[in-house]
Design a protein around this nucleic acid. Structure first.
Length: 415
RNA sequence: GCGGGCGUAGCUCAGUAGGUUAGAGCGCUGGAUUGUGGCUCCGGAGGUCGUGGGUUCGAAACCCAUCGUUCGCCCCA
């Protein structure tokens, strides 16, 4: 009987993990600069939380949720995104009236068919601002995104699309107008788009179907911008003015988001280097969500970064620590030699002291030292232990000398 | 949930008009003067040919199913 990892779930090993840490560290640095603190919410939540927030029309809830009944008969789901759980926790703590700037990172789960940039267990970093009405916060949110792109050095690979969905009333109104218009062309629409006409007409705006594109190009198609108030259009313009010099940012009135709870500003960052799943940051304002979940009415805006996708875009730069490979050749009481290694580690946290941990031949241990990328080898045999002088070998220079522990520590401090 | 490609050693891949013990390179591992790496040389380990059925005297190869993977659709970060 053989086990393998579940479909769409990956084991992330050493070198890949290193990439992840480098990514995390860059993102963290930017978030720290904005004074955004971390929140950790559970991965499991009540099933209905997601039905209520994400929307019962969306595929995420309809067919992509990992859900089950626990031993107590409660309906549980693995989180498909992070906003719902975070908002739930804020309301539960009764702090929704206080402003919050928070981020979270972690795995999310959707039962989808895996493909490039899409896994069943994937990772998101989310940022949520609560208690900041439309205006300054919207600008700061885009500013964070701009800084993230810059920190990752991927600004040139990315396009930020922005749109405004207006108030909930405007959203509904436009939705109705669009639906009414499209009904005349229903027969020309693809099967999928015809279904969307009922479930979520706005989604047809970014349909990839050719006939839908033709219809959407018609001059009498209701235009979102015609429904929007001037102040909303002005917000979009000011975002272009603020970030246009550093980023490719453009207004796209056909941009709608899949999650029901968005109102107001919405945005999405895409890259043409990612294949079909080209969007790696997405978010927007969701001023109605908190009250819908039973909290006091409070404005909110946030976004999520698809970390698995970002990982395909950025080139990590690793910090480098010198590495000493510890080779123990002593025959008896081998632990005495390992004490030397411990003393070196105590003397400096900026150096790696890695043990080979075998009694194989010196030749094979040195080969190993080379493969491990060691800068130095510390070789200790019985004779060295007796004399308290150890072999310190510079693997790059191919030179070596006998030195005491104190001399080794002195050398390390000079590195 | 739908469609296409792929699945032979840890990795990248050879191997088919079906035919004896399935190969290469890299990697791993041991050795080439006693306790000295990288280059070189010699040796070794490692594969139920994704899995399960079927066709056949005979299947890695042909057929079916299944699982996985990959690229799209859909969905979305």
């Amino acid at each position: 009987m053989k086990f393998h990892s579940l479909r769409g779930m990956q084991d992330i090993f050493q070198d890949d993990s290193k990439r992840w840490r480098a990514l995390r560290s860059i993102l963290q640095t930017v978030l720290d600069q904005y004074g955004i603190g971390e929140v950790q919410n559970p991965i499991l939540e009540n099933l209905n939380l997601f039905v209520r927030t994400v929307g019962d029309a969306s595929d995420i809830v309809n067919k992509e949720l990992y859900s089950f009944e626990d031993r107590n008969g409660e309906h549980i789901a693995l989180r498909p995104e992070g906003t719902a759980g975070f908002i739930r926790s804020v309301i539960e703590k009764k702090i929704e009236h206080e402003s919050q700037k928070a981020f979270y990172v972690g795995p999310m789960f959707r039962y989808e068919r895996p493909q490039k940039g899409r896994f069943r267990q994937f990772h998101q970093l989310g940022v949520e601002y609560i208690g900041f009405p439309e205006g300054d916060a919207d600008i700061e949110i885009i500013s964070i995104i701009s800084d993230l792109l810059e920190g990752l050095k991927i600004s040139k690979k990315a396009v930020i699309n922005i749109n405004h969905l207006g108030t909930n009333d405007v959203k509904q109104e436009y939705c109705r107008a669009l639906k009414e218009f499209l009904l005349d062309y229903k027969d020309s629409l693809s099967e999928i788009d015809q279904k969307r006409l009922d479930s979520n007409p706005l989604r047809i705006l970014d349909s990839k179907d050719e006939s839908a594109k033709d219809i959407l190009a018609l001059s009498d198609l209701p235009q979102y911008q015609d429904f929007l108030a001037n102040q909303h259009l002005d917000l979009l313009d000011s975002l272009i003015a603020s970030f246009g010099s550093k980023n490719a940012i453009k207004i796209n009135h056909k941009l709608v988001r899949g999650l029901d709870y968005y109102t107001g500003l919405v945005f999405e960052v895409v890259s043409n280097e990612l294949g079909a799943q080209d969007s790696f940051i997405g978010g927007g304002r969701y001023d109605n969500l908190i009250s819908e979940l039973g909290g006091r009415p409070q404005s909110a805006i946030g976004f999520a970064v698809g970390l698995d996708r970002v990982l395909n875009l950025f080139e990590p730069v690793y910090s480098y620590k010198k590495k000493v490979i510890f080779i123990n050749l002593t025959g008896s009481d081998r632990h005495h030699a390992y004490n030397i290694a411990s003393k070196i580690r105590e003397a400096s946290k900026n150096i790696i002291v890695e043990s080979i941990l075998t009694d194989a031949s010196l030749k094979s241990q040195l080969r190993k030292a080379n493969k491990l990328g060691g800068d130095f080898a510390l070789i200790i045999g019985d004779g060295e232990m007796t004399n308290k002088k150890f072999i310190w070998k510079d693997l790059n220079e191919s030179s070596q000398e006998f030195v005491t522990l104190e001399e080794i520590i002195g050398k390390i401090h000079q590195l």
